[in-house]
């Protein structure tokens, strides 16, 4: 985060408060300030769609803030009314009148000269799995399937440990090049991929999924992804061509063990 931008914003708002500026200035300062914060505080830029959502919410709230109190509303409109009506502001008013079409023209110019971008595609990161898949000639119902070795965690901890070790081997022989040694999606090949590989440490990924879902993603990879998941945007191989079923279940055990997350359980009615 760029802390200096944030500190500058807070300082500017405090100064405005201390100077007891009018309500119009206060509202304008909030809007401009927040826009700058959203654009420049985060090292990784915030997408325009989110900035629009946030600015819309804040504008609505500021609108509510002004209109809830009649005195505040009068204070808000007074400078605008004066600016439009009083003769002393006429030159400025003329400037504003010219600036509006100029801004529109500039916007059109900017849009026309913008670098062409690939068409937008709302990729679904966790697309819905099919009801069942066939891996190595055996059918698996994804809605009810669970890791066949998960029970060993309590029934036979020794064997579970062995399976974890086998899973570790599978991971470091096959997966870590992209998903990284810490499973944070930062492997040595990750920077060549777009989008980057999944970060398993993120609580929004494997922590909220069932093991059968992971099995589906590993076995079928990008080629087996439904349209909404944008299969052409993922470099994930279909690992069923290289790994046995047992190896895939073992590596899933290892993913959860390493990250410390528990898989989502199969819910019963």
């Amino acid at each position: 985060m760029n802390w200096w931008v944030l500190i500058a914003f807070v300082a500017a708002m405090l100064v405005l408060r201390w100077r007891r500026v009018g309500i119009l200035t206060w509202v304008a300062a909030w809007l401009v300030g927040l826009y700058l914060v959203l654009n420049y505080v985060f090292v990784v830029p915030v997408p325009v769609s989110v900035i629009k959502i946030y600015m819309g919410i804040v504008s609505l709230s500021l609108f509510a803030f002004v209109l809830t109190d009649s005195q505040r509303m009068t204070e808000f409109w007074q400078p605008i009314q004066a600016f439009v009506v009083e003769p002393r502001y006429r030159p400025l008013l003329a400037l504003v009148a010219l600036a509006i079409p100029a801004l529109v023209a500039f916007r059109i110019y900017a849009d026309m000269t913008a670098t062409p971008q690939a068409p937008f595609f709302a990729r679904t990161v966790h697309p819905a799995p099919p009801d069942s898949i066939i891996v190595h000639d055996s059918e698996l119902a994804l809605g009810t399937a669970d890791n066949p070795y998960r029970d060993l965690e309590t029934s036979n901890p020794e064997e579970f440990k062995e399976r974890l070790e086998k899973g570790r081997a599978v991971y470091y022989l096959n997966c870590f090049y992209c998903h990284g040694d810490l499973m944070a999606g930062a492997g040595m090949y990750a920077h060549a991929l777009n989008p980057i590989p999944t970060n398993f440490q993120d609580p929004g990924t494997i922590a909220m999924l069932r093991e059968a879902f992971l099995y589906w993603r590993i076995a079928k990879g990008a080629p087996g992804m439904p349209e909404e998941g944008g299969p052409w945007q993922s470099a994930m191989p279909a690992w069923e061509s290289f790994l046995t079923e047992e190896e895939m279940w073992n590596v899933i055990l290892f993913l959860y063990d390493f990250t410390g997350y528990q898989p989502r359980a199969v819910e019963l009615h």
């Binding site: 985060m1 985060f42 990784v44 830029p45 769609s49 959502i53 709230s61 971008q117 937008f120 989008p195």
Partner: peptide
């Protein structure tokens, strides 16, 4: 309101996806 309306997978352009390294923002994704 802002938290509730924050998407996990964000509508973003190709450049934005590239900058975020995926469709989730590393901070706002939380």
């Amino acid at each position: 309101f802002a938290i509730w309306a924050t998407p996990r997978s964000i509508l973003s352009t190709t450049e934005e996806v590239q900058a975020m390294g995926g469709s989730s923002h590393p901070m706002l994704g939380y």
